[in-house]
Structures are given as structure tokens and as C-alpha cells.
Design a protein around this nucleic acid. Structure first.
Length: 578
RNA sequence: UGGGGCGUGGUGCAAUUGGCAGCACACCGGACUUUGGAUCCGUGAAUCCUGGUUCGAGUCCAGGCGCCCCAGCCA
């Protein structure tokens, strides 16, 4: 019998209202006194890759359910396959979970902590005549397994005596046999409709070095034999996992039942899918290895590291997961929902600053040469306590090229020849001249006149302007590199394609080498998030250093204005689908 | 008749377990605005199909249809 690890008694916590089928099931178990009212869950990542937004859903469910029911959640690395797993990922995964805002109960655990106990369990099944050593090769096992519609055949070694099985299994452990030479199998039912029950492999021989147990073991348990028993050893009450394990539940239950040990309840939910992105580790790995992105934490990646670098907040991600809900139907959440959660969060907390991405020089002809004045700008209209900061204003400014049209289309309210607009927190200015490059005809400079009476942005005569644009004093602006990200794929469901790589957007990253930001950003620290007024949310990339500012555009602001041609709509805005 | 699961507006989730189909995102329109942001108001839009039970069905029953997962010594 396994000792169930003592877990803190669950206090008479207020039972939360069930909001989904899992919480309803847990609430029912709690009410019925099943598991003595305890609630213990676990998050069981395999340390063979970095966590992504799909894992965030599992994390929020595993940790969230435990927390809501006054229980606890373990972190257990499912490290039963030494050839794929690495310590590097163990650290990254822990950091990501903590960044998301969760803390596991006690130390991080490992399935490999239980290898000896698992071995003893295997011995028990052999003695009970419910497991046997098979000499069939991998190919033979596959052939004997049958197909989805035809039953399998029993292995010729299925009838070995307990003694022989015990001997052979001990020798497997001792390393007497070559990799793949033998396996330990559960004796269940080769005719079962559920293929998982056709004498599943429990142990395979692997002469590989394990990231934690080194070369102590030559045999390693398969997922099915390790997971449920690990849950049992840890006293997990509710083992929440994704839908593809539904077919494994009969096997999960079978092992626990045969062993006669503490029997947790496995409940499955649909994993998260997101439009315009891929979620499988294999595909993400390929994006990294083939150089389609700059690494696991490329801001275009749906990895938690990528989202973090992009400027996402853990709060936004958790809110997104909450809104997506939990169910058993395969579904694909829209990236727009994630972005909505992000904007909601950032709108509340991100300080506003001025940033000019594509500068257009503006000379205020009637503003005194050499004069500089500091105009107060509101740091966050959503948060009065954030105060104001001084913004330097002078004769030569930068505005964004987008904010001027020599021939403005209808509904375009910004600057144009003869038109007056407000420079935010500064003055009304009117465009009185346009300077062009004689060779190309490109607009290189605007000549404007300001109205001194409108200082701060209000006209005493009550005159109105239809647009307010952002600006920077050219002499005071700081240069910055700005990286604009678009979604990685053109198709909302790139995983549906046979070759998802063919669906990559060719220009998902645009680097603006020389953009300008306001001087208050001189000391901006990596990770800091800002709203560049009228443009979007940006964060300081870790590539920044002393004297070098690099910003990532996290997400654009929503805008009612749609340029003339639909193809010019803001890049991160949704492609409309019918 | 291989096994398992799932079908509610464009998307994701609800519906007191048989009682007026609701919320969010998206979309569209309007108000307001010193961010074409935010905020506020509003429109449109759904129960896979066919039968049955019932005063009443998204919910119960029967039969269809569609989609997803499973044939690793991966997890």
C-alpha cells in the first residue's frame, strides 16, 4: 500500500458556486465527503519544452480549482522519458508558473521521485498475474495490437509464469537486455474496443541518462503506468487533464484498482486553441529551429515567455482564461478576446507617453527660435493619482507621417494643408506649407503656425478642431528602435493545414530602427509597459541597454478610423471573416 | 454497430436541471471625447436534423447527421 502523503486539512472553505462542469464535479465530491472533503490537484508538465498559452489554461484550472476549494496544487514534472527531457526546461517552467501568479504546494515533484515505488507496484501486478514480460519487438507489438476495427492477438509470451516474469523484469532493471528487447505489459484485454486496454506497455528498456536519476535506471515507466500512481502517491484527489486522455481513464482506473491504492478522480476538459497561432510543441519547436522566429521567447510566440516579452500581463492572460471558460467541446478561442483582456488591463495601468514611429518634421514658423517650454501632460487619464509630467515643446517637432495627408480622404480629420489640429497638451497648429523633396516629391517637412492663445489645448474663443495628434520636440526626443509585430499566420487555423509553415505571414515583424520617444523614457527599464498615445501599448525589450531603447509593440489601440483601402487597416486588427 | 467524446448567434461560454435562450468578445450604428483610446447607449445575429413525450423541450426519449480523439516501447 502506498502511503498517501499528508496534506493540509481542508478547512471548511466556502464552497464556490460551480461555474463549469469541473468545479461542479469537485463541489459535489466535496459535499459528498468523497476524499474526505479534501481537494488536491496537480499540474504535470513534461520538461521537454516551454509552456505556452494552452498550458496557461491547464495551470489556471489546476491551481484555480485547488485554491477555490481551499485545497492545494502540486507541481509534478512528468519526467518518464529520459531521451526527451532536460533540466533547462524545468527551470523555465517553474519561472513561467510563478510569473502567471501561482505557487505550488511544497517542493516541485518529479515522477522520477517515484521510480522505486512504481517498480514495486509493477512487481505487485506481476505477482497478481496482471503483468508480464513480453519479448515482442516494437513492430511485432504493433502488429499484434490489431486495428481500430479488429481485435488484437495475444502475445505468445503472455502466459509466462509469475516466477519467470519476476526474474525477467529484475534482469530488465539490471540492464541485462538491449534497448527495446523486452517490455513489461499489463495483462488486460487484447480484444478491447479501447486500444489502450490491449495489454499496454508499462515499462520499456532505455539505456539513456535521465536528467535526475542519471544512469540508475535502465527501464522507465510509460505515462499510463506512472501518472495515475504518481497522483495516488501524492494524494491527488482530482487529476484534471485534457480530452485526449479520456480514452486513458479506463486504464488509469484499472491500474489503481488492481493495485488497491488511493484512487484519484480523473476529469478531462478541452484544451485551448487560439486563432492565428499554433500550439503544439512540435510545431513551436520547428518555428524556433527553422529560424522563423528568434527563439522561444520571440514576442510573436504563444509561449508564456513570448507573451511576457511581448508585454502581456499575467493578469490579462488569467482573465482571458477565465472568460474562455471550461468545457468539453473542441473549440477555438479568438485571439481578439485575448487582446481585449490585454487592452482592458493595460488601459488601466499603463502610463501614457508620446512616441513617433515614422517621423515627419514640423516647423512652427511663428514659434520663437530657441524657446522651450514644459507643458504638463497627464500620465494616465484612467488613474488621476498617476499625476502629470512635463513635456518639452519647441519650434521644431516630429509628428507621425500618418497624421498628415496632403490630399485628405473623406473622414480623415488629421492634419492637411490649411487645416488646424490640436497638438496634444500643447497648442492648436495650422498647416501653412508643405516642403517636398524636389527629386521624389515626397513630403519632407511641414510648415505650421501655432495659436499662442490655445496653450494647453483649449481655444478661448471656443473654436474646435476635429483631431488631436501626438508630437515630440525634435531637439528633446530620444531615438528608439521599435519592433512591430503582427500575427504569425495568415490563416485563423494554421494547424488545420498540412504544412502550417506555408501559412506563415511573411512580414510578421517590422523593425523601425529610428523612431522617437519622449525624454521621460530615458531610464525606462526592460519589461516596463507604456501606452504610446493614439497608437498602442509598447514595452521595453530586454535588448535595451544604457543609451539604447528598444520597444516591442504589445498590441495596437482600437481605432474607429478605417483608411480608404481595407488593405491598409491596422495590422493587428482582425481580418474580417464572414 | 471498434472504442471514447462533442454539437446553442461570427467566436467562447451560460440557461435556476422541463418554464420568457443570457453574458463576454467580434461586428454594425449612435452619444461623448484634449488619445479616431477609454466610457456610455443601441441594432442585428443561435439551440445540428427528423420524429416523439409534455400545457410547455436547448434540456427528456428514439432515430439520423456532422465534427474531434485513439492503432508510440511519446506525454
Amino acid at each position: 500500500m502506498a502511503q498517501t502523503e499528508p496534506t493540509p486539512p481542508t478547512p471548511a472553505a466556502p464552497v464556490p458556486t460551480p461555474t463549469d462542469f469541473i468545479r461542479a464535479a469537485v463541489a459535489e465530491d466535496t459535499a459528498n465527503g468523497r476524499f474526505g472533503g479534501r481537494v488536491v490537484t496537480r499540474f504535470p508538465p513534461e520538461p521537454n519544452g516551454y509552456l505556452h498559452i494552452g498550458h496557461a489554461k491547464a495551470i489556471c484550472i489546476d491551481f484555480g480549482v485547488a485554491e477555490e476549494f481551499g485545497g492545494c496544487c502540486n507541481l509534478r514534472f512528468d519526467d518518464t522519458n529520459p531521451v526527451k527531457e532536460e533540466t533547462e526546461y524545468v527551470d523555465g517552467i517553474q519561472a513561467d508558473i510563478r510569473w502567471l501568479g501561482f505557487e505550488w504546494h511544497g517542493p516541485a515533484r518529479y515522477a522520477s521521485d517515484y521510480f522505486e515505488q512504481l517498480y514495486q507496484y509493477a512487481l505487485q501486478l506481476i505477482r497478481q498475474g496482471q503483468a508480464y514480460v513480453d519479448d515482442l519487438s516494437a513492430d511485432e507489438i504493433r502488429a499484434y495490437r490489431g486495428t481500430l476495427t479488429e481485435p488484437g492477438r495475444e502475445s505468445p509470451h503472455r502466459g509466462r509464469s509469475v516466477e519467470e516474469n519476476l526474474d525477467l523484469f529484475a534482469r530488465m532493471r539490471a540492464g541485462e537486455f538491449a534497448e527495446g528487447a523486452r517490455t513489461l505489459r499489463a495483462k488486460i484485454d487484447m480484444a478491447a474496443g479501447n486500444i489502450n486496454l490491449r495489454d499496454p506497455v508499462m515499462y520499456r528498456i532505455l539505456h539513456a541518462e535521465h536528467h535526475r536519476t542519471g544512469t540508475a535506471w535502465r527501464i522507465y515507466p510509460m505515462y499510463d503506468f506512472a501518472h495515475g500512481q504518481s497522483d495516488s502517491i501524492e494524494g491527488v484527489t482530482h487529476s484534471l487533464c485534457s480530452l485526449e486522455y479520456e480514452d486513458h481513464r479506463p486504464l488509469y482506473d484499472w491500474f489503481l484498482e488492481a493495485l488497491g491504492i488511493f484512487h484519484p478522480r480523473q476529469i478531462e476538459f478541452a484544451r485551448l486553441n487560439l486563432t492565428y497561432t499554433v500550439m503544439s510543441k512540435r510545431k513551436l519547436l520547428r518555428l524556433v529551429n527553422d529560424g522563423h522566429v528568434r527563439g522561444w521567447d520571440d514576442p510573436r510566440m504563444p509561449t508564456l515567455g513570448g507573451l511576457r516579452r511581448r508585454g502581456y500581463t499575467p493578469e490579462a492572460i488569467r482573465e482571458f482564461i477565465r472568460r474562455v471558460g471550461v468545457s468539453k467541446s473542441d473549440s477555438m478561442a479568438e485571439i481578439e478576446l485575448l487582446e481585449a483582456c490585454l487592452r482592458e488591463d493595460l488601459n488601466r495601468r499603463a502610463p501614457r507617453v508620446m512616441g513617433v514611429l515614422r517621423p515627419l518634421r514640423v516647423v512652427i514658423e511663428n514659434y520663437p527660435e530657441g524657446q522651450v517650454e514644459a507643458l504638463p501632460a497627464v500620465n494616465n487619464p484612467e488613474d488621476p493619482s498617476a499625476g502629470t509630467r512635463p513635456l518639452p515643446f519647441s519650434r521644431v517637432l516630429y509628428i507621425d507621417q500618418d497624421d498628415f495627408r496632403e490630399a485628405p480622404p473623406p473622414k480623415y480629420f488629421r492634419l492637411a494643408p490649411g487645416r488646424e489640429v490640436r497638438l496634444r497638451y500643447a497648442y492648436f497648429v495650422k498647416c501653412v506649407g508643405v516642403v517636398k523633396d524636389p527629386a521624389t516629391g515626397a513630403v519632407t517637412e511641414l510648415r505650421c503656425a501655432y495659436d499662442p492663445a490655445t496653450r494647453g489645448g483649449d481655444a478661448p474663443d471656443g473654436r474646435k478642431v476635429k483631431a488631436t495628434i501626438h508630437w515630440l520636440s525634435a531637439a528633446h526626443a530620444l531615438p528608439a528602435e521599435v519592433r512591430l509585430y503582427d500575427r504569425l499566420f495568415q490563416d485563423p487555423d494554421p494547424e488545420a493545414r498540412s504544412d502550417f509553415v506555408a501559412n506563415l505571414k511573411p512580414d510578421s515583424l517590422e523593425v523601425i530602427e529610428r523612431a522617437w520617444v519622449e525624454p521621460s523614457l530615458a531610464e525606462a527599464a526592460p519589461g516596463a509597459r507604456y501606452q504610446f498615445e493614439r497608437q498602442g501599448y509598447f514595452c521595453v525589450d530586454p535588448d535595451s541597454g544604457p543609451g539604447r531603447l528598444v520597444f516591442n509593440r504589445t498590441v495596437t489601440l482600437k481605432s474607429d478610423y478605417r483608411p480608404e483601402s481595407p488593405s491598409q487597416s491596422l495590422p493587428t486588427n482582425p481580418v474580417s471573416r464572414s
